[in-house]
Design a protein around this nucleic acid. Structure first.
Length: 430
RNA sequence: GGUGGGGUUCCCGAGUGGCCAAAGGGAACAGACUGUAAAUCUGUCGUCGGACGACUUCGGUGGUUCAAAUCCACCCCCCACCA
């Protein structure tokens, strides 16, 4: 994975110059629609419109006409027939090799179809292999994949090395979406993620490519597939107000305040869980409804059928990888990357700086930590994060196949079998 | 060699007669998770037992005391300053 990175700047990706602009357009657009109470899950008219609009801006390159409508049709068709849109998810703790596995899967298509280029011209039919006619009702043969980021940190433009974004070796294999498009000063969120991811998934599906979500942010995946209460965007002033009160009064006082407003939710969270307390109070104040009320509303059924492939390994082995990865990042210029990011955004409280490694390097370039101390904390925090991810993934996807790093062939065989079987009537992939 | 300070449970560190298995922090282990999620937060954390409890622990040995991590003696080690 990181070992194969050849560049520090994924900005210059030969095959896919429109990735960032695309993603940014999507975010801005969805941000503007943030207040759409229904828009989140793809269950309403605005949402389809959103997909359309996003494509019109972003996908200008290869498929200006076809895709938006096709994406819309994919969603509409899926709703009408009840068929689910297959989405491959690669999950696992940080440093387990998700990016590498995704690249291996993407590369498999290129291997079996040497003439295929990652970005197909519109209207061009994928080559069919004569010897591999399907036995079953012939579904479409998938024509490669699109890799979609499901990691809350790899969205930041200023930190390609530190957040282990795929490098040119990976991005040359197939289109990559939602990587490195956001400024350090800008916020990302589960809501923004699912809007953009939905767009990317539908676009890929319309192009007859398999959407492959790669990332370790469990909440994002859960939200995408399980839905989220359609709470409107909270005005910054409201959030600031409650953060101010949190600072003055402390979390316990706000928690008892919350108990008076929303007893049920207050009982669910700990009196010191400041982030959730502030969120619940902000939602209540800006919408006039309690957090519990929002949560109690039924969620539309998901149009997706996630196929989940996890990578896991014992902590003792993961530690070795994590340590090595940090050293690799330093060799690739992580310190310089942080210095540059600091020039662009000197505010350590900016959302982008909160990533593991970023915060520690910030302290180092400000002279508060020696490089050794910085690396020590960086490793410690990375390890703790990996543990949290393992805890999350232990219970969340119940039907995932779990492999160890390097079991590429097993992964591909399994994927082939899954997609060729009900309820995914695709031809064998590779 | 002299003077002063110090050795506490995995680590840092508080405790200077009973309320001490020993504050607090870190690490570790387990867990929660509905728009900051690489975030936010929780539980356990000497050993054994279900809780009440029993047992072992505060550099070592010996002593004083009903009672010691805490007081005394000697010994070992560390740090600072003086020589």
């Amino acid at each position: 994975m990181t070992g194969t990175r050849k560049t520090k700047s994924p900005n210059q990706r030969p095959g896919f110059p429109r990735d960032r602009a695309d993603a940014r357009a999507g975010l801005q657009e969805t941000g503007a629609r943030g207040g759409c109470a229904q828009g989140v899950r793809g269950g309403c008219a605005q949402d389809v419109h959103g997909v359309h609009g996003g494509c019109a801006q972003g996908v200008a390159g290869g498929c200006a006409q076809g895709v938006p409508c096709a994406a819309q049709a994919v969603l509409a068709g899926a709703r009408k027939t009840g068929a689910k849109i297959p989405v491959l998810c690669l999950i696992g703790p940080t440093g387990s090799g998700k990016t590498g596995l995704a690249a291996a899967i993407a590369g498999e298509w290129l291997k079996t179809r040497p003439g295929m280029v990652p970005e197909r011209e519109p209207g061009q039919e994928p080559e069919r292999e004569p010897g591999r006619e399907p036995e079953r009702e012939p579904g479409p043969a998938l024509d490669g994949c699109v890799i979609i980021n499901a990691d809350s940190r790899q969205v930041y433009r200023d930190f390609p090395i530190i957040t282990a974004q795929p490098g040119i070796a990976e991005t040359g294999l197939c289109p990559h979406r939602m990587y490195g498009f956001l400024e350090t000063s800008e916020k990302f969120s589960a809501g923004a993620f699912i809007r953009m991811a939905q767009e990317a998934i539908l676009e890929a599906t319309a192009q007859n490519r398999l959407p492959v979500l790669v990332g370790g942010t469990g909440l994002y995946l859960k939200t995408l597939f399980g839905g989220i209460a359609p709470i409107p965007a909270i005005p910054q002033a409201v959030a600031d107000f409650w953060h101010g009160r949190l600072k003055d009064e402390g979390p316990e006082a706000l928690h008892s305040h919350l108990s008076e407003i929303d007893k049920d939710y207050a009982a669910q969270i700990h009196p010191r869980d400041s982030q959730r307390i502030v969120r619940a109070l902000s939602v209540w104040q800006s919408t006039g409804e309690t957090f519990s009320w929002w949560h109690s509303r039924p969620l539309p059924e998901s149009p997706y059928a996630p196929i989940t492939l996890g990578i896991d390994l014992p902590m003792s082995e993961l530690e070795i990888r994590l340590r090595g990865r940090i050293l690799e990042m330093l060799e690739q210029g992580a310190v310089l990357e942080a210095e540059k990011a600091f020039e662009r955004c000197p505010n350590p409280d900016a959302p982008g700086w909160s990533g593991i490694g970023c915060a520690e390097l910030f302290a180092h370039i400000k002279g508060r930590l020696t490089l050794d101390e910085c690396v020590g904390q960086w490793f410690k925090n990375t390890r703790a994060y990996a543990k949290r991810q393992k805890t999350w993934f232990r219970k969340d996807p119940k039907d995932a196949l779990w492999l160890r790093p390097g079991q590429k062939d097993e992964a591909i065989a399994w994927l082939n079998a899954r997609l060729s079987a009900d309820p995914f009537p695709f031809r064998p992939l590779f």
